[in-house]
Write a protein that binds this DNA or RNA. Sequence first.
DNA 1: CCATGTGAATTGCTTCACAGCA
DNA 2: TGCTGTGAAGCAATTCACATGG
Lengths: 215, 215
Amino acid sequence: MARKTSDSTVRRLSRYLRRLRKLDAQDRKVVSSRELAETTGTTAAQVRKDLSHFGSFGKRGQGYSVGDLRVHLEEILGLDHRWTVAVLGIGKIGSALLGYGYFTERGFDIAAAFDSDPSKIGSELGGVRIQPLNALEEAFREHRISIAIIATPVEAAQDAASRAVSAGARAILNFAPIKLSLPEGVALREMDVTLELEGLCYLVTEASTPADGPE
Amino acid sequence: MARKTSDSTVRRLSRYLRRLRKLDAQDRKVVSSRELAETTGTTAAQVRKDLSHFGSFGKRGQGYSVGDLRVHLEEILGLDHRWTVAVLGIGKIGSALLGYGYFTERGFDIAAAFDSDPSKIGSELGGVRIQPLNALEEAFREHRISIAIIATPVEAAQDAASRAVSAGARAILNFAPIKLSLPEGVALREMDVTLELEGLCYLVTEASTPADGPE
DNA sequence: CCATGTGAATTGCTTCACAGCA
DNA sequence: TGCTGTGAAGCAATTCACATGG
């Protein structure tokens, strides 16, 4: 059972699940690897291979049961229960996250929000009260928070992350444009709009460069 | 000169550049592949291999000139000039993007913002006036907008994207949780907070599963 | 002597193609 | 017959290791 599933596989599983939830809501009963592939931007073989790492969930000749596969994927991804998260740094991005109602329906509860700016502390956003950083340890313990979202300015990001980890966070989602260093065993994902924009610039530039034709 | 550079390479180049800009601001003159690797989360060999696809920028025995390498990377990524972008959908995320002052200093100008909600139209956010969708074509032409950021609700995302592409967008940054279908040749990157959170859940769950020991 | 640049070796991921089963 | 599940093949990315040259 000790698996080594790559990041890209996990991302695809998440996309399959997103699709399955939608199909489920539409009362679809069965789906093929081909359809799942087309609607999530991959190939049928890839879908089958991804799923086969975890078991045989389909019926040969038929396809996959939407409901069953959904439940299996939720289990595999650890989404068979709700997750409690905290947001550190309530600037533009942090505020947007607190107001982003979509989290709740996807199984994530924002249980706490922190900022160092005294003028923000005490106010409420999206039903969450903003607390000072020194309330962090207690809040993490009380709410059993396992995921911390770092949305501070870049200078404060490493400290915020380290503190969240000491307080019990086992995963960090980092919005600050910096490479965080975290202890072994703490999961990390990054979201950096500028980085993605720069990637697009490369592609656009490359596409419009005369170059020397194909091959 | 016809290159086939993978997505992950481009992401790393972007990270190197981020670091080089910081070193440059600190007046550092030279940097080694090892240091660049450590501060961006990769290996020295990887740094050298990535750069070697585009030329020989270093001096053996010395390292890389911070300023020179920075300029080279800016050229490679197409960041030797400014880029004009538009934001479609001014909800929580769109508003945060308009207010996110960090874009300007990284070479991106938000030239236009669009929403379908009449109550939002005409108001100004981060110095950009929100326009109705039917002003899109003219704005894209006038400002020569090449990148569209989709921040609409999921139901509106495909239409918004298609419309942006017809109006001249050559790249899409999509915040909506849906697989967009775009014509060949239009670059696409996705940002999905929920997807990243789910990835973290998987890692945390996997790490705490008893499993059956190593191997 | 030191760190780059790079073929060669390796590792990992994706695609292929078909056996197996409803 | 139709679509899954899966070894094997093919491809891409990373790591190794060392020759190269300041």
